[in-house]
Write a protein that binds this DNA or RNA. Structure first.
Lengths: 104, 104
DNA sequence: ATAATAGGTAAGCATTTGCTTACGCAAATT
DNA sequence: AATTTGCGTAAGCAAATGCTTACCTATTAT
């Protein structure tokens, strides 16, 4: 029952779920429509995503809207960023980030 | 046998292994000395890390030196960065990165 | 040559994971 | 009031995971 973000995003279906609701919350059945596996399977994935805070649910009548809490990815991001300065292409990527910033 | 980086870093022991050799390659037994589990267990973890390119091995006599190939983390990093602009704290983190750059 | 060291790998096992079908209940529709 | 819809969850199952012990080969030391 170690439900951490690293493990949550290890499953490709769960990553797809996150991707699906990143911009717009969806209710559970709408999410399940996008996958080949059964609704209960999706329900279980969403439970896992909730347990590590990557998703929050808002009840709305009989529907449950799932909203992505992407800031939870920060834990993973920070772990990786610790090593970024050791990569060869460090400055190229920094340039990308700078360009992005300037574009704003 | 889907050996992708996401799954590789889902295991805390494997993350610790990466952390251990991030700056300095170590041979397998030296790595295993840092963990409570057996040497074969570590050997199996390292096999997984190799299969997704996160580690490369250099034979040196009877020793095998394990070197972290951190650029493989890029796949995870890129996946997360796609969502960073959706976080609330985006610009705070950008400031951090800028400060880091300036310090160089 | 013999022994010690480094490490790969198989077999066995308990636990976890991911899925299914079946069922249950609350909210909405008719 | 009866039915349909949305969704949680239990039970069951196959496969994957993580570990152990046992054994093996190759290199180094004595």
């Amino acid at each position: 029952m170690r439900r951490d973000v690293f493990q949550a995003i290890a499953d490709p279906t769960r990553r797809d779920i996150i991707n699906l609701i990143a911009y717009k919350p969806l209710n559970l059945n709408s999410i399940a429509d996008n996958f080949e596996v059964s609704r209960p399977a999706i329900s279980q994935h969403i439970k896992i995503l909730m347990e590590c805070g990557l998703i929050e649910m808002k009840k709305q009548g009989r529907e449950r809207y799932c909203e992505a809490k992407l800031e939870q990815l920060n834990e993973v991001s920070e772990w990786i960023e610790r090593y970024r300065k050791l990569w060869a292409d460090k400055f190229d990527r920094m340039d990308d980030i700078l360009d992005e910033l300037k574009a704003k």
